[in-house]
Design a protein around this nucleic acid. Structure first.
Lengths: 215, 215, 215, 215
DNA sequence: GATGAATGAGATTTCATTCAT
DNA sequence: TATGAATGAAATCTCATTCAT
């Protein structure tokens, strides 16, 4: 199962790192810091995370941290951009959803990918949910990634005959999918992966056709 | 429309206040602090809120704050307990939901009450969502209030003939309702109250019957 | 057995009380505060004692405290003056001490009175021992009371034929008597009253004749 | 003459310092803080000492203090442990004490070492005497160091033929020695070192044989 | 006379960031 | 490139004292 911090090596670095050409050791250190950041944001949330926590988790020093990132926000931004692009890739992959069993399976498979992506980037997504990030730029990034999903889902709903407003319904469904994943990961909600996907797929599927007289 | 901090005078005080006999002026000051706390948690979130912000908003002094509350967490706990009891009242009021238009209207009316309650206690609910509160007790309170809603909805779903797991579906629907309200209040999502209720009611209604062959 | 705060009603009040004519209720309140002060100094020491502790122990209010005393130091000063006069009375009562059994018994009886007085005024004496009182006046009071004892004992030593310096020996013996009482009351030293008196009387008695070739 | 803070470099650090590997500069800073702590405890007593006083005396910053010690108590504990071990060393060095001149000289020499040790660690010992330390652990440390001395002296008394209870007499004599040193250092008692030692040695010596019919 | 309430100065502690090696 | 050390601004909390009722 995917876990936070999995995935390909992250491409870009924080502001200070971009001014320098990183060699092998430098890239290694930066990866350690990014992984540590993900871990700490996961455990403590964004606001409560301290640079000290990150450098302890990365087994490095304060001085080193600031060689690679301007500050905590800069570190988060790098992680966040990676998350946004994963979400955009995900959005791109949602094909048309038919009313019957076939459509249900398409949706379920796509939701399985969402769940996986959420687990990889959960700490970042949850941090976005911490209502009040310091910087508008980060808030915008968060909105963007959810918007990408919602827009694509709205397109798919618009292809149906339902009477529900596609834009609104899409946002509501994204809200549900995101939040249920949050409950499962962060609260004590116990539910196995199959049941989670069945539940989400069922509701999203009928939700997409809500008000459709043909059903 | 309801706004954060509206509602009946809060019954209990923080730890220090409970040890003393409050007179009229004292009760007034405590209410000022509670209202100020709600405002500040709303504007800055729980973690970022400083006692200093609260006392400024309440136009009083640090010393006074600590006459009534042991610390920020204590203030939050009082607000949170009030929120929990509002949520429990709300849960009690959800009657049976029939499949047709009648059931839809019942649901929509109840969701209107939820939206109202959310707006009154939104800052608290959003703070619960800040993944990591300092104390387990507070986290538990948050879980309790959402659980109260989910259990009642699960009961209502169980009365239907759908094939979806009532417990899981209920949690998913609560997640959706909560989070969409959050998006609307805290993100820039613009959607008027009627459309919000239509969307939620439609999806929750079909969601409750998901997998019902009779539909 | 004597306990802190026993003894006759204290004659004088703190600075603010002396400006007013106290009636029955006022005198009662002042006595409550003095007794509470003794209790709190006993339990927490002078420096750590807070006005708040005193008013809680006296079951009265901050406002009331300042009707009777200018501050914590003022309260202490009243207790301290009472202690000084008790010490002076005690010093006056030490008669000549002969070398043999008779002298031993005289000394032992007098030490019994000292022990009793120490128990009554222990909190004050221990506060004096808190090396650093805020005000020189209080430090002087403390020194005065121990000096009164030491001078009288020095006189008694000077009447003997020993070679020890009477002034120095007297201070040393007072130091011992005071501190052993402190150990017994404040540390866990368990020793019954008779053994305590035997020990003190034996050592003080031989100490007074130290260097006396006739022994 | 010995002065507070003299002596070998202290081996252990406070809680936070023990988690880190200190380099030369770090060890230097820690020593500065320990010396400053000794100075401030000496001048103001434990309770009245502020972290602010310590950092000013050490010419460093608040932040730095907390790199090395968890708080004032932690700093004191380190100093106290050093004092305890000095007292234990001292206790180990008291050999048998004979009745005559020879024994007197042995005792006097040992008391000279005590006086020296007291001067080195006086601030700590006096702080222990501030009846009420915050933590029981610190109080226990204080008791331990005086107990070490008293037990050894009790052994020496038990070797004599006197009728006085060795345990009780030993505590009384330690009380005297400690307290007289305190009076000399902290009160205005003027007495030169030779006279101080003569006085203490005379009284302790006869005290050890109190009740001995052979004298 | 008595009291609950309010105040604000001051103490403690944390932590992001910079610096010297 | 890495790191331990240092800093100081800012946050939390306490408590003696004054005030209004």
């Amino acid at each position: 199962m995917a876990r936070p911090g999995d995935g390909p090596p992250l491409p870009t670095g924080g502001a200070p790192a971009q001014l320098r050409a990183l060699r092998a050791q430098g890239r290694r250190t930066m990866r350690k810091l990014l992984a540590a950041g993900m871990k700490v944001f996961d455990e403590r949330g964004y606001q409560a995370a301290r640079v000290d926590d990150v450098v302890k988790a990365a087994r490095t020093s304060h001085g080193t941290f600031y060689l690679y990132f301007a500050n905590k926000e800069d570190l988060f931004r790098v992680l966040a951009e990676d998350c946004v692009s994963a979400m955009e890739d995900l959005a791109d992959d949602l094909g048309p959803v038919a009313p019957g069993t076939e459509g249900y399976e398409v949706l379920r498979a796509w939701l399985a990918r969402f769940v996986d992506t959420y687990r990889r980037h959960g700490p970042v997504i949850r941090a976005w949910a911490e209502a009040h990030l310091d910087s508008p730029e980060l808030a915008r990034l968060g909105g963007a990634s959810m918007n990408a999903l919602a827009s694509r889902i709205a397109e798919r709903i618009a292809e149906q005959d339902g009477s529900v407003d596609p834009g609104h319904a899409a946002v509501a469904l994204v809200a549900m999918v995101e939040r249920l994943n949050y409950y499962v990961l962060s609260r004590g909600i116990t539910i196995d992966d199959d049941a989670l996907l069945d539940t989400l797929a069922s509701i999203v599927h009928v939700g997409m056709f809500a008000g459709d007289p043909g059903r």
